[in-house]
Simulated scan of single mutants.
Amino acid sequence: MQQIGIYEQLITQLITRRLNRDRFYIGERALEPAEASMWLSRFLCHIFEYAISSIPAGENQVQQQVLLSNELLLWLKEKLNDDDFIEDNLLDCQGKILTALFEKENPIAADYKKYIDDIFPLTGLSQSELFSGSNAGLSLESEIKREILSSDKIYWLVSFIKWTGIRIFSKELEAFTRSGRELKVITTSYMGATDTKAVEFLASLPNTEVRLSYNTQRERLHAKSYLFLRETGFNTGYIGSSNLSHSALTNGLEW
């Protein structure tokens, strides 16, 4: 470790051995109790990922990885002396991921598998993804449609709303709000870029609240965020440069 600059990482014993305190000024600070669990769990996450991925590929690789994970949990149980911890967290031996939960008595679709495939975001609900106008086979437009259909509440904060952008999601937003779910939108009249037709369409939807800022001298709102909340707790958010316009949501050079 001899790259000059700033760092922010836990100091391991290996790093300690490599730090030349005679040659370099070493900036360091104490780990605060309030942040210790975050820092240590993030550090262990990388260690566990390496350990689990080191299990050789084969017919039973996933089962062996699950077994190792459960062994680590059992070890933690001994350290914590907490029986409830282990009962709640041991993994199913088949290594499956829960993707949906819907009632059978009041079905909302004839084919649940197809329905879930249609509304589940392709990028998932628990990892980050970078979108741009050049995403091969994956656009912000298609993902937001799926987000709308699978959400319980939607909160949007955008600088400008164009009719060409709202029109992309008109059917999904109509279905979302007609079902009794809540939509809230904040935008601005800054630079006169927002289309009246787009705002009127949103305001006409049931269970929808639209706020338009006219204070363009003091409130030059330039944020773009799309928040999708779910009662399951698996909420998603999109933060970037895309306003609600056709080009920004499809092939524009946005992040």
Rank of each mutant, 00 (worst) to 15 (best):
L91A: 15
N60T: 13
F48P: 02
M191D: 04
P33A: 06
I166C: 01
S247Q: 11
E78C: 13
M191H: 10
S139F: 07
E182W: 03
D195A: 12
G233Y: 07
W163N: 00
S134Y: 15
T16C: 09
D118V: 06
L249Y: 02
E129M: 14
K162A: 07
E87L: 15
G165W: 00
Q217A: 14
L253H: 12
V185H: 04
K224D: 06
P121H: 14
L67T: 13
I6S: 14
R23G: 07
E78V: 08
D117W: 04
V210G: 07
S241T: 14
R211A: 13
G237M: 10
V210C: 09
V210K: 13
A175K: 12
Y238C: 05
A175G: 05
L10H: 11
E182D: 02
L40M: 01
S242H: 04
I15W: 08
S37H: 03
R21K: 13
I108H: 11
N243K: 04
Q13K: 13
G124L: 10
E105F: 03
S204P: 07
I166D: 03
Q63T: 06
E78S: 15
N81K: 15
L149E: 11
T236V: 00
W156F: 09
E174I: 01
L183R: 05
A248R: 08
S139Y: 05
E219D: 12
V66R: 09
L91N: 15
Y155C: 02
I15K: 14
E8V: 02
A203M: 15
Y214T: 13
L31Q: 00
P107D: 14
S37W: 01
A175D: 03
R181P: 05
A193T: 05
F120L: 01
I161V: 09
R220P: 08
K153C: 11
A100F: 01
Y214C: 09
M38G: 08
K114C: 06
K153G: 00
Q61G: 01
L19N: 09
I239C: 08
T250W: 10
S41M: 06
L244K: 02
L212V: 09
E105I: 02
L72Y: 13
L244F: 15
L44T: 01
R18P: 03
I239G: 04
F24W: 03
K79M: 07
Q61A: 10
E35V: 03
S189D: 06
K162C: 06
E78Y: 15
L14S: 15
I97Q: 15
G237A: 13
I86E: 12
L157P: 01
L40F: 01
Y112F: 12
K114M: 07
H246E: 14
G233N: 04
A110T: 12
F120S: 00
